[in-house]
Structures are given as structure tokens and as C-alpha cells.
Write a protein that binds this DNA or RNA. Structure first.
Lengths: 400, 400
DNA sequence: GGAACTAAATTTAGATTCCAAATAAATACT
DNA sequence: AGTATTTATTTGGAATCTAAATTTAGTTCC
């Protein structure tokens, strides 16, 4: 209600409340004494702030305080904890062929998930939106959450998105993805929707709960069907002017690369090429359905020469890409993510070996454990970031 | 003196004072009424803050207020303005063969400059420091400023520097540059020294007072003898883990490039190569002293075929580099900077032409007007950034 | 069961800062 | 001289914090 111009006394309470809330997000149930030590506030103030936050619904007080940690002298301390059910956030992965929605609580715990295919690749925008909306409602319903309790939504799409969440339709193709989701979900449900590029979300996701946990300078390469990357420098996502940062189209110019197909796609193609010849290889048993990357990796592990050659070729290509990107960006770590990543661990050794050819200071290389949920995990993180930054400006639907 | 824990009432005054100071830095002499409109504070508060700042020496009050803007009704307004002489900052360009120091006031006006060569490239650290210190003292003396009035120093060096101003001596070569300048100048003079990579400072400099003024996503390529770049995304410099972001060593992998020599170096070499043959060219008249880039550009403008070929080749190479970097970083603008930049304007047309081969969404390309002072300009900006961020924690030497 | 002990919670007094509104001051215009 | 206008100052009230004194709600021990 009250407009804050620059610095009113109310600003102080905001700062204090923010500090307390930050501490609570990082801890389980805490006593006021702990709050006070963590924030530097006085006891009187700390209690006042907690009461404030409780009244607004962001935290709750526990009953049987003494139940914690056995014997304690003195007057029992009150205990407070984050009300992780004060509201929910949605993380969306909107692909070409399907939409996936994850419902998460305020601690980032995934409570429910729903996925729906689009009838065809080229359906009109309203239809895409309808499917997405329906998927979201199903996911919410599955956890018994009302649409009013959604505090933020983040959707990942396979197009460049600038740092304001806008899709610049410079290339016609991307128009497909800018289906007006933001406006549609705001109008229909009153939700705040953040748009972000899928590879960027993968980077956020993996830095949160993947191989890059806590690393400040990291590049995550979404590498299954096509290459795309999310780059984080100093803990901040890079976007560039039109959200195009992290595009790996420059690969066309790197010697020995020349296209932007991902690991899964290349493995499939190269295996097919090999089978067209007369070589002897165990891959031939999959020939009918087409050979997938996993099968190539397995065959290579069994000593199949053709599979090993393909693996080596993949590793060299990855090394070139990682070498080029990390020379210019200088990350501490490069993570390979996406559906193929889980089985791509076998590539790490060969990649490291090839990498020494392309850079004198190679980064660490890892595969993400998040599999194909890497984008939704990142979307949840992105939505939570928004909520955490704006907590004190948000009104909760049903302050219980 | 007083430790601020989280949110004390004193914090409010800090916020208010910061807002007022920011406004004053962006304006000339201002009345309290203007302050009040800009910051949203009350008149009473605005005056109190101004008096505060004046007492601390950061701003001053003008005498003949009414002298401004002719006729005015009502009680004359007091006028305040930034005291740009409250202290000074030093911007340093520490190269291999010489050190340059610029003294600037708090509005970024260069007041004096001094430059001194190092006796040899490989002199010991103490000697390098002594030369740098002496150069700084000379520059200060030339403007009549005392060493005590220096609020911050920023030094640009040709080595990777991480975002904490540390030089990681991963490669032995860089050890040359980490001569302990920070500690030495702190101990001798009590100065706060910020270290930064020279190309990064070039980026800051050009974004401040060059071709990239106000552009949030920009890459500045220092291109004279060697290529190095400073990359800014969303107004923030990229560093990477060890300060290596912006290194263009990956050029080794880009087809048609293959080394990291800069424009001046390449022009010189290619011209010499051409002269070794029997072609007819007006460049031959410079053959004795060696042909410089400027001369090649001039001859090309006169229609000399050999010079034009070299120019075209340079443009193609620049286009490849710009194409590769900007595909992955997606800047709005790429600036060519350094001593050679002033005459490199002739390259812009050809570069733009070649660029379409390497990217579908080419950035704007420009040359920096800052010449070889681009690094010191950036160093001054960097030091000012520090002072502006920490103004209220700094004590002025002689509060007049 | 009551006294002693202990840590937490609450109350009280004081300081800083802000805003809003009333009052005072300085100048130009008539 | 008187009025209008703009700026400056003063006064009163509110929010917030800290620091210190006081009260409370338990445990422990006799």
C-alpha cells in the first residue's frame, strides 16, 4: 500500500525482514536466538520481525519446541520455520512436441508433475497455450494446490530470450515459441510468468542441484539433439543483447565441427553411416530400429571397434567445442546436460584427453545427473529466485 | 566507527545520502528543490543530507546562487554541487615497456598524466614498482595533488586478473605482471589499488567515453599488436574463473585465423611478405623502415592493389573473429580499440561485408575514438566506480 | 513442594531518522 | 508598503532500531 520513495523508516523493517527470511530459507526450524546471532539484530527486533512474517504467512511457529535437541536449561525458546507451503511455483519445459510442468514448494521440493504432448508440431498459438494451461492445471490438481496460490511461473523455451524475458523474433523460426504465454497466463490465471531460454535454465538447474552445485563460473551444454548452452559468469546468467548468448552456431567456423547436431543425433547418424558399409560390428543388431547413443556407448565398452571410433570422434568434437567456449569464457567447469548426459559419462575420459590439444588451461568437465528434467529444475529455480527477491512485495492468497 | 549490523536507523541516512550523491554526480549545481524531486525525499531531509555531505567534504555550496538562470521569484534557493576535488583517483596503464598514470578528479576529468619507460623488459619487481610509483608521484605533482588525497587507484595489466583483482600465476609468463603492486602501493602510500586486465579496462573505458557509450552488451577488442578483448554483458564485465574471459586464443581453432597477432602486427608482416616478391606497389617507399598499418590503409585508399589485398585480408580476419565471438556472446556492438583503431575506420565497411558470411545476426561494429588512452580511461572509470560505490565509507584526507 | 538457576521473552527508555504541516524568511512584483 | 512566491526552518508525530532492566517459563536440586 504505502509507496516507498527512498528511505523511510519502513525500509528498515524490509531489510531486517529480508535478512531473517534469507536465514530461514537456509535453515530448518530456528530459535530466535539463532536468528539474532545470524542477523545481528536485537532480540526484541528479531521477535518483532518474526511475528510480522508469521502474520503475513511466510513463516510459521512450531508447537513442541522443546522436542528439538534433548535437554535444555532456561525458558524454552520459540521455534520458527519457513512456511514452505505459503505458495507454490511452477517450472515449465515447453518443447516442440510436449509441455512439462512441475509444481514445487518454496523450498524447491517438487510436489507434482504433469506432461502433455502437442497434437502436432505446427498447431496454432491458442492451442499450444491451451495445452500448456491444461498441463499446469493438472499438475496443480495432482498436489491439491489452487491456482491462486501460485506465486510465480517460469517457462523454458528453445528460443533466445533476452534478460527481460522478451523473445526477439529476429528469426522467423523462433516465432513458433513466442506464443504469448506470458500475457495469456497472466490474463487467465493472474500468474507472473518468466520466460527463459531452455539451455539457460539448464545452467541454473545444474548449478542448483547438479554437477555445478555452487560453482560461480560454469557453462552447461545441452547436448542431446542439438547443442545449446547456458553460460554463468560470477553466478549470473549471460544473455547478450537479444538473449542469443550461449548459441553455439559459431561451431560452423571451428575446424572439425561444422554443424550443431548434438551427441544423440551424431551418434545415430554416424552409426547408420558405418552400418551402410560392410564392417563387422555388434551395432548391427540394432540396425532395424536405428542405433542410439547409449547403445554405441555400451558397444564401445564391450570393445566394439566401430563403436569406439564413434565415441572417440564424439569426444574429439566435444573437446573442440568445450575448448573454444572455455577459452573465451574461462569457466571453472563445463557440464554436459540433457537426456543423453546420464550415459555420457564414458565420454569424460576421452574428452579430457582430447581437450589438452585445444587449450592449455582446460576446465573441469562433468555430466549432469539431472537427465531430462534439467530444464524444469532450472525453471523452478528461476521462479524461486523471483519469489525470493520479491517476497516482501507479494501478497499471499490465503494467509493461514 | 560505528559497526552497522543489519538495519539500524543510520542505514536510512546512508541510503538517502547515496541517492542524493548519485543525483549530484549526474548533474551540475542543483537546488534542494531539484534534489527533492529527484530523490523523493522531503525538503527537511534533503537539506539535512546535503549539510551532512557538505560537512564530510563530498559536496560544496555555491555562493551567488541567483546567478543561475536569470529571473526567479521567491526566496533564493541554495545551490549545491559535487566537490569534484574532494579527492583524486589514479588510472594506470602498466605495459611491458612503460607505465602511464593519469590523475583524474571525481567527475572523471583528466587533470594530469605522466609516462615513464621501464629500463628493460625484464627488470626485477622492485624496480618496476619504483618506476610506477615515481610515475604516479610525478603525475600527482603536476596537478598539485597530495598522495593523501588519492581515493583509489586502478592499474591495467596485460595478464588475466580475476574478479577479486588477483593474478593467478597459472602461466609463468604472467608472473611478470604480478609484481605485488597492490601491496607495495598500499604499504608505501596507503592507496587502495584495484588490478584489472587491460582489455577489460578498455571495455570499461570505451563504454564510458567511447563508441560504446551506454551500450550494455558490448565486446571491445584491443587489436593493435595482439588481440585481447573485454566483454560486457548486461553492463557487467565478464571475468571467468581466473580472469581469463575474453582471451582470444581460441582463434587457433577458427578456420582462416590461426594465431593471435593484432592488426598492426599483421599489416606489418603481410606488407613485408608482399615486398619480398616482385609486385609493384607504392608501399615499397616505406620498405626500409618497415611498413605500418596506417600506411597500408593510406595506400589502399589510393588504389594500391597490394595494400587493398592486405586490407581485405585483415577485414576478413576481423570478421571471422567478430563473427565467432559475437555468435557466442551476442553483443549489440563490437568495438575495435587500441592505438591502431583511429586509422582502422577504413576496415569497417569491408568487415561488415565479410561479416555476413559468418553470422546471420551481425552486431554493429565500430572503432574506438579513444586511441591508446583507452586503457587509462577505463582505469579511471574503474577507480571511480570503486569510489562511487564506497563513498560513504571513505574518509577524506583534508575536509575543507 | 519450594528455592535456585537459566535462558528466553517482554518491557521501558532513548536515539535516529523520516514525513507532514505549520511557520518564518527572502526575494520579486505591483 | 504590501502581496505573491519560493525556499528554509521548526515542530510534532511515527517507525524503527538498540541497550538495559524486568518478567516469564521452564529445569534442577534439596
Amino acid at each position: 500500500m504505502t509507496e516507498i520513495s527512498v528511505a523511510t523508516p519502513q525500509l528498515l523493517r524490509r531489510v531486517s525482514a529480508g535478512a531473517v527470511l534469507d536465514f530461514m530459507r537456509a535453515s530448518e526450524a530456528v530459535t530466535v536466538t539463532e536468528v539474532l546471532e545470524a542477523t545481528g539484530l536485537t532480540r526484541a527486533t528479531a521477535i518483532a520481525v518474526c511475528e510480522d512474517l508469521m502474520q503475513r504467512g511466510w513463516i510459521r511457529e512450531l508447537e513442541n519446541q522443546r522436542a528439538f535437541g534433548g535437554y535444555q536449561k532456561g525458558r524454552p525458546a520459540r521455534r520458527f520455520e519457513l512456511n514452505e507451503r505459503a505458495g507454490y511455483v511452477l517450472g515449465m519445459d515447453v518443447g516442440v512436441s510436449k509441455a512439462t510442468v512441475v509444481v514445487s514448494d518454496l523450498r524447491g521440493k517438487a510436489l507434482g508433475r504433469s506432461s502433455q504432448p502437442f497434437a502436432e508440431a505446427d498447431i496454432p498459438a491458442e492451442e499450444r497455450i491451451a495445452v500448456i494451461d491444461r498441463t499446469a492445471m493438472m499438475a496443480l490438481h495432482s498436489v491439491g494446490a489452487s491456482p491462486d496460490s501460485v506465486l510465480a511461473v517460469c517457462a523454458g523455451i528453445a528460443a533466445p530470450v533476452d534478460r527481460n524475458g522478451e523473445v526477439l523474433v529476429t528469426q522467423h523460426f523462433w516465432g513458433l515459441f513466442d506464443v504469448g504465454l506470458k500475457a495469456a497466463l497472466r490474463d487467465r490465471r493472474g500468474w507472473t510468468v518468466l520466460l527463459e531460454n531452455d539451455a539457460n535454465l539448464a545452467a541454473l538447474g545444474d548449478r542448483w542441484r547438479g554437477a555445478a552445485a555452487g560453482v560461480d563460473d560454469v557453462v552447461v551444454i545441452l547436448a542431446s539433439e542439438r547443442f545449446g548452452s547456458g553460460m554463468i559468469d560470477g553466478g549470473r546468467l549471460l544473455h547478450g543483447r537479444g538473449g542469443g548468448a550461449g548459441e553455439l552456431a559459431f561451431l560452423d567456423m571451428v575446424e572439425g565441427v561444422g554443424d550443431t547436431y548434438g551427441i544423440a543425433a551424431l551418434a545415430r547418424t554416424w552409426a547408420a553411416d558405418a552400418l551402410a558399409g560392410k564392417v563387422k560390428t555388434s551395432l548391427r543388431e540394432f540396425a532395424a530400429e536405428g542405433v542410439e547413443a547409449e547403445q554405441v556407448f555400451a558397444a564401445a565398452a564391450d570393445g566394439d571397434a566401430v563403436a569406439r571410433a564413434i565415441l572417440e570422434r564424439l569426444a574429439d568434437r566435444m573437446a573442440r567445442i568445450i575448448g573454444a567456449v572455455s577459452t573465451i569464457i574461462n569457466p571453472e567447469l563445463v557440464v554436459i546436460g540433457g537426456a543423453v548426459a546420464k550415459s555420457a559419462g564414458v565420454l569424460l575420459g576421452p574428452i579430457a584427453r582430447h581437450l589438452t590439444k585445444y587449450t592449455v588451461t582446460p576446465p573441469r568437465v562433468a555430466v549432469s545427473p539431472l537427465g531430462d528434467s534439467i530444464v524444469t529444475v532450472g525453471a523452478v529455480r528461476c521462479a524461486l529466485d523471483y519469489v525470493e527477491k520479491n517476497t516482501l512485495d507479494l501478497e499471499l492468497a490465503v494467509p493461514d
